[in-house]
């Protein structure tokens, strides 16, 4: 534990382990008691409000569980087989992976760059830019998606109108299978970027200032300071952004639901929409649950890979 922790904060490693030795390597009894006393209610809470429903859903996924059939026969892996044989599942999976990859990459890179730049601003520009970038996050997704839908509208939408002045377009945006995914990604990055920027800024505030002073005395350029100090020390933040960003991106739903409902055709069909359709439009809850656990497995694997990669990447 101490080793993995130290790995995330290399410059402090020395002092940390020295003091830890003074105190003793393992946790004291009072620490253990404190930990379990506070952790237990939280764990029980998760068991009751999260795991209990999750196991119910897991059980549903092994049953033919349809609103339109009074019986609920056990069918083993039948729902999973059905889902894997459904072409729509594979389309949704491809679209989801495409979305997640582009969205998370764009948000991480832009978020890190903008976050670092905005953090280096003087007041009031810092607060102003941070607010400007964060404003889209504060709008409700349904409303934001609907505004973008209006802006994207071919024929009379503002976006084509404005692009017309620059000699671009007109594009069909959400109305064409070729442009619908990029259009949804643009709207999602616009909406979500501020979240990443704010997290990176919060991460930067926790980096001790004297490290930058020292670097500056050693004659490091701002870029070097970013590369040598900010980036390694932001690893916990980056990891957090990567993991939560990916988990969120794999569950992309509202913006698709509020604009295209997966269309045209199935060009923007994503996994959670596929799940929602089966659960609450076709009332096949067993299949919906199976989809959920396939999605769960996928996200779990991706997360574990991310945790492993990022840990080893910055191991000192």
């Amino acid at each position: 534990m101490t080793a993995s922790k130290a790995a995330h904060a290399p410059p402090l490693q020395g002092s940390r382990s020295r003091l830890s030795q003074l105190v003793g390597s393992g946790p004291t009894r009072s620490q253990t008691i404190f930990g379990w006393i506070w952790l237990t209610p939280i764990l029980l809470y998760f068991a009751y409000f999260s795991y209990y429903p999750i196991f119910s859903a897991l059980s549903m996924s092994f049953h033919r569980w349809s609103l339109t059939i009074p019986e609920r026969p056990f069918i083993g892996l039948g729902n999973y087989v059905w889902v894997f044989n459904d072409p729509t599942f594979w389309i949704s999976l491809t679209n989801t992976l495409y979305f997640a990859a582009v969205y998370v990459a764009a948000c991480l890179v832009l978020g890190l760059v903008l976050g670092t730049l905005i953090f280096s601003f003087r007041e009031p520009f810092k607060s102003i830019m941070q607010t400007v970038v964060f404003l889209p996050v504060m709008t409700s997704m349904v409303v934001a998606a609907q505004v973008w839908d209006l802006m994207y509208m071919p024929g009379y939408g503002i976006l084509n109108y404005l692009l017309g002045f620059v000699g671009l377009g007109p594009y069909m945006w959400l109305q064409s299978p070729q442009t619908v995914m990029p259009a949804i990604i643009i709207l999602s990055v616009w909406k979500g970027l501020g979240y990443f920027v704010v997290l990176f800024i919060a991460g930067l505030t926790t980096i001790p200032y004297h490290l930058y002073e020292a670097a500056s005395i050693d004659g490091a350029s701002p870029f070097q300071a970013f590369w040598r100090i900010s980036l390694p020390l932001l690893t916990p933040t980056t990891l957090f952004c990567l993991v939560t960003g990916s988990i969120g991106a794999f569950q992309v739903f509202t913006q698709v639901y509020a604009t295209t409902r997966g269309g045209p055709g199935k060009a923007s069909h994503v996994l959670l929409l596929y799940l929602y359709d089966h659960g609450f439009r076709f009332f096949e809850m067993g299949r919906a649950s199976a989809i959920a656990f396939i999605l769960f497995g996928l996200v779990l694997i991706v997360t574990l890979i991310q945790l492993r990669l990022l840990r080893s990447q910055f191991q000192y």
Partner: peptide
Amino acid sequence: CQPAPTPTPPPAPTK
């Protein structure tokens, strides 16, 4: 939390 320490039995479906 008392009533549900074991999360195994699902509420509805297993009939």
